[in-house]
Nucleic acid binder design. Structure first.
Length: 286
DNA sequence: GCCCAGGAGAAGG
DNA sequence: CCTTCTCATGGG
């Protein structure tokens, strides 16, 4: 299996990236590397002391076309962290804790499915639900000693399933949201959702579309904009962010408007990165 | 038994 | 416009 090395990568930490709550399909291996499925492929990612990202199970062309973008390697996170620390004296400790976070550029449909499942749920169970969905209804994309790897089923597959079909995945009341959203996406054409990734599409336009899908409210919509659409000023507010906004910034825990305004005024175009540093710091230190 | 988890939708003010 | 209830499921 071919191995590709990407040299000179800083501000990069595997545990930060894959355990910060932005993705659910990457598993840590005994050697510290991570294996997962994305872009319809199963790969293994490692990082060493020399600042090299090592990707196994891929090709140089695939790295250039897909994985550099997916891992967001062409963005200067050092500059972003500097900007945030200057904008806000309090965020420094969160950045010190999760300074190796990179906002993965995930696939729109996978992100829609993942974060519909994430609502009122906990991360270990979210992972189980998504893996079950992939194993039962997805397509096999690779094999290892531990078992096979499956990609998530697309909207064309889920749209033809019933809530009863999905019972095996134990999604609870979210199963009907998935089926309904899959049907809506197919009706509009999958290109509508995927087109929102374009920089020409504003955050507002993208938000208005995804929030119109069943089971997607403001929080899940903002996660989709941030983790799949490249709208880095998105600021998803969940229970952990409410907690951190109260404890670090003394904002009323139920005043969402105040949190949104604070994020926009303080973090600006990098609100999404700030949110992720804060979320990870709060979740891991509570 | 209780409460909580990367909330959203529906019903009622 | 706002607030409150309900929604499956599993873990602590």
């Amino acid at each position: 299996m071919e191995k590709v090395i990407i040299k000179g990568v800083a501000d990069f930490n595997l545990d930060n990236i894959f355990d910060c709550g932005q993705c659910f399909r990457w598993e840590k291996q005994v050697d510290g590397s991570y294996t997962g499925v994305a872009m319809g492929k199963a790969i293994n990612v490692d990082y060493n002391d020399s600042g090299e990202v090592v990707i196994k199970g891929t090709t140089q062309e695939d790295v250039d076309v897909n994985w550099r973008t997916y891992l967001d390697l062409d963005r200067d996170y050092g500059a972003i962290k500097k900007f945030l620390k200057q904008a806000d004296p309090v965020i420094g400790k969160a950045i010190s804790y999760g300074g190796g976070i990179r906002i993965l550029k995930q696939e729109p449909w996978e992100t829609v499915v993942s974060f519909i499942i994430s609502q009122n749920n906990n991360i270990p169970r979210i992972k189980k639900c998504i893996n079950s969905l992939a194993e039962n209804f997805g397509t096999k994309v690779g094999t290892a000693q531990k078992g096979d790897f499956y990609a998530l089923p697309g909207p064309e597959v889920l749209a033809k399933l019933t809530v009863e079909d999905l019972g095996v995945c134990k999604l609870g009341y979210r199963a009907k949201y998935l089926v309904s959203t899959a049907k809506q996406v197919m009706e509009d054409g999958i290109g509508k959702l995927q087109g929102l990734v374009s920089p020409d599409v504003s955050k507002e336009e993208a938000f208005n579309y995804v929030v119109g899908l069943t089971g997607i409210g403001p929080k899940v919509a903002n996660c989709i904009l941030l983790f799949a659409m490249g709208k880095y000023d998105s600021f998803p507010i969940d229970t952990w962010v409410k907690k951190v906004m109260h404890e670090l910034y003394n904002i009323d825990e139920k005043d969402m408007k105040a949190m949104e305004k604070f994020a926009k005024d303080t973090f600006g175009e990098y609100g999404g990165m700030a949110q992720q540093y804060l979320f990870y710091y709060m979740k891991e230190n509570s």
